[in-house]
């Protein structure tokens, strides 16, 4: 693994999903770019999003997997989901079609992740108010019905971006503390970096399902 100094105690794996052009990469960039200002620059490149955040006094390293959103890759991108602790489902508030596809994204996420995976719905491009195509209330209702956390954000202005990522991490951390998330399960998407010995979690489930290809 990279980053030898263990300045964090957990690693959470996130995936960002959603149609092409909803601004997944921009959200990721907006969130991780701050690391250039505060953290040391020689960790992992921009392309692979990581950032260490502070949740409830714990340092948590977020590893964010950006995914390709094109319809034609849907069938093959399933292996992204494996072992994700959090899934950020993104739609574009100015394009209704991206909202309409949410249910199929949600189905995929539910099917391919474990039950404790936290799903967070993000309506991106909230800064383009005059082009709004999906009402806040409508999306909120969808989120409530499906038990998702929801926020409207803007990768451009940075509005609510931080909140979305941090809230997800808080929820996951809560799951860990409640014992709902089994740290020892491979698919949990959470690694505990042992500052104290004896709690290292490595894969348990051994015959690794060979990837879907």
């Amino acid at each position: 693994m990279s980053a030898p100094p263990y300045s964090y105690s957990y690693i959470f794996k996130y995936i960002i999903i959603g149609d092409m052009g909803v601004g997944k990469s921009c959200l990721l960039h907006q969130f991780t770019e701050k690391k250039f200002m505060s953290d040391c620059p020689h960790t992992i490149g921009v392309e692979f999003g990581t950032r260490i955040i502070d949740v409830c006094g714990q340092k948590i390293k977020l590893q964010i997997w950006d995914t390709a959103g094109q319809e034609r890759f849907r069938a093959v991108t399933r292996s992204y989901y494996r072992g994700a602790a959090g899934a950020l489902m993104v739609y574009d508030t100015t394009r209704r079609t991206t909202y309409n596809h949410l249910s199929s994204w949600l189905t995929d996420t539910r099917n391919l992740t474990n039950p404790s995976t936290v799903i967070f719905l993000i309506g991106n491009k909230s800064d383009l108010k005059d082009q709004r195509d999906v009402a806040y209330e409508e999306a909120k209702q969808f989120a409530d019905e499906n038990g998702l956390m929801f926020v409207e954000a803007s990768a451009k202005t940075g509005d609510n971006v931080e909140e979305a990522f941090v809230e997800t991490a808080k929820k996951i951390f809560q799951c860990i503390q409640d014992g709902r998330l089994d740290l020892n399960a491979t698919e949990s998407g959470v690694q505990h970096k042992p500052s104290q010995p004896g709690r290292q979690t490595l894969t348990d489930q051994s015959p690794k399902p060979s990837c879907s290809c």
Partner: peptide, 13 residues
């Protein structure tokens, strides 16, 4: 997939 330590394939770059 078979013989790499599985945690390496789960997370990280």
């Amino acid at each position: 997939t078979r013989f790499c330590n599985a945690y390496r394939l789960m997370t990280g770059e």
